[in-house]
């Protein structure tokens, strides 16, 4: 037996051994059976759907669906105001978060609190635009889309230290 064949056999053995630890009862999962919230939009924008929305459109949706919890203009709260920072919340989503893509994904999956996953993609783009514009991160004219959102430079980006990369599981 050649070295190659030996290695291949060993690999196969390890693979079988590893798999044999469980009864192997997983069923095949088709891509069409995976809901959007089982993935996450990446900082590069992978996973962003088609659609678009502006800050002006977002302002109307925000007033109707978000203001009771996050404040009339986004900075009053009571819940973690997305516009700031201020004494209520030092980490406002629209200026503190390192990537703007997170706004889209989080609002789409989780907000509004009482009716998550009820917003259309256009509405979510508009709300992201509204929050970013209120924080002075984008101008009022730019619509947020799958192309423009990942290109937004967040002001606090680059101000984070990755503890896991630096020291792994050692507590800070």
């Amino acid at each position: 037996m050649s070295i190659f064949k030996l290695t291949a056999a060993a690999l196969l053995l390890t693979a079988t051994a590893a798999r044999s630890e469980g009864p192997g009862l997983g069923q095949p999962l088709e891509a069409s059976d995976i809901p959007f919230y089982a993935t996450y939009v990446t900082p590069e924008g992978a996973g962003l759907p088609a659609g678009s929305g502006t800050a002006a459109q977002g302002a109307e949706i925000y007033a109707a669906k978000c203001a009771t919890c996050h404040g009339a203009t986004g900075s009053e709260g009571p819940v973690m105001p997305p516009v700031g920072p201020n004494d209520l919340w030092a980490k406002p989503a629209g200026s503190y978060w390192p990537y703007a893509t997170t706004l889209f994904d989080y609002i789409r999956r989780a907000m509004p609190l009482e009716a998550p996953k009820s917003l259309s993609d256009d509405e979510v783009y508009a709300l992201a635009a509204f929050i970013l514009e209120r924080n002075g991160v984008i101008d009022a004219e730019t619509a947020m889309t799958a192309e423009t959102l990942p290109a937004v430079k967040m002001p606090n980006h680059g101000n984070f230290l990755d503890v896991w990369a630096k020291q792994g599981a050692k507590p800070w």
Binding site: A90, K91, P92, A93, P98, Y106, F160
Partner: peptide, 22 residues
């Protein structure tokens, strides 16, 4: 992927204004 919690709510701002993530 920088989910909401690892972007803000579960990050720690240090004395110098920079933040810890992860």
């Amino acid at each position: 992927v920088h989910t909401k919690d690892e972007s803000g709510e579960y990050t720690e701002i240090l004395a110098d204004g920079s933040s810890l993530q992860f």
